[in-house]
Design a protein around this nucleic acid. Sequence first.
DNA 1: CAGCTAACAGATTTCAATATCTGTCAGTCC
DNA 2: GGACTGACAGATATTGAAATCTGTTAGCTG
Lengths: 199, 199
Amino acid sequence: MPSTTETLTAERILEATEEVLRRHGPAKATVVDVARALGVSHGSVYRHFRTKAALREAVTKRWLDRTSERLAGIAAAEDLAPERRLRDWLAALFEAKRHKAGDDPELFATYTVLVDELGGVVHDHIADLTGQLTRIIAAGAESGDFTAPDPATAARAVFHATGRFHDPGYAREWTTPGIEEEFEAVVGLLVRGLRAEGQ
Amino acid sequence: MPSTTETLTAERILEATEEVLRRHGPAKATVVDVARALGVSHGSVYRHFRTKAALREAVTKRWLDRTSERLAGIAAAEDLAPERRLRDWLAALFEAKRHKAGDDPELFATYTVLVDELGGVVHDHIADLTGQLTRIIAAGAESGDFTAPDPATAARAVFHATGRFHDPGYAREWTTPGIEEEFEAVVGLLVRGLRAEGQ
DNA sequence: CAGCTAACAGATTTCAATATCTGTCAGTCC
DNA sequence: GGACTGACAGATATTGAAATCTGTTAGCTG
């Protein structure tokens, strides 16, 4: 039973893949399942994605990009003071990840598996996020609020230092009681470390 | 073939267990293997450890404690300036973990598996390490080198912020080229954040 | 009698046969 | 004739029967 008569597009395949992953999980989701969900033969799916890995990569990239886009808005908010912008951005990153993990834990676990079987995608995602952070810190350095000889290095340091609050490997900890305070303590320390001497 | 005629002690069982883990890995190491290595029946092992989990826990605790002990020396070196002491301690922690991981990757992977199937042991280990950090930071706060209203909170923040350089989950990254510089950048930022206003 | 063994029940793991999946391609169908 | 199918070979996953392991205990042994 074909779900619609529309032509088969990469986009429709990605949507079906996401649904199959949600239902079956990363280990049991097959290309045949995706084709079945679309009412086509699996050969047709291979017309749009050369391998199963390419399909998984595309769907994962889409998922990661949805997070980056939301944060890009904050990174671009040049009206806010740099410190405020940095704190908001980090809080939004934490909140976004935590929400994804808490909302639908199985889907989050699924994407976590996909993410670390796909080296390149994560690398790009992290480059994207640290790029946004670099822009915030560079703005702060220019305005004199921050001391940062090399904003890109400082951005990576801030990103790594807050890993506990956005790296999926720590997702289990995101529901423990004191986590908000831990986050505040780490961010507070980092912001103090970035601030220019005369405040 | 009994390896010796000595009486069977908990200590001898732990040594044999470590050897069996090194040889077979965490998934295939059995209590029967340990007993065989000691030339006794597995029932004798159960006389000293109530369950297989208890045996694994004891051997893991021993392994973690070997790291803590080395660091305790630095934490107690009260002749060093607080900032120096903090930097040395963090560098020693990174170095210790990195060495363990690089030296015998399979044994490290084995213990990593054990560590995160045993919730309580890690918790104690982390409490031990953050306790050492707290003492260093508290000393810095007293001497006026650091600003830290709550040294224990600051210690946990520093520990979490440097997770990338001691959490086994990141072991893969410890051999990548820029890791030393990343470490320096994070530690530099944290130390700046801890320093009292007038330097 | 303290320390050990050996045999056991139930749970878990292994292994090999069987089924399913991936990726290709010759051929069908608007 | 461009999008799709369906049959195929080799790779991977599933399954269930057999082997092994965990944890207990009755009894041996020095």
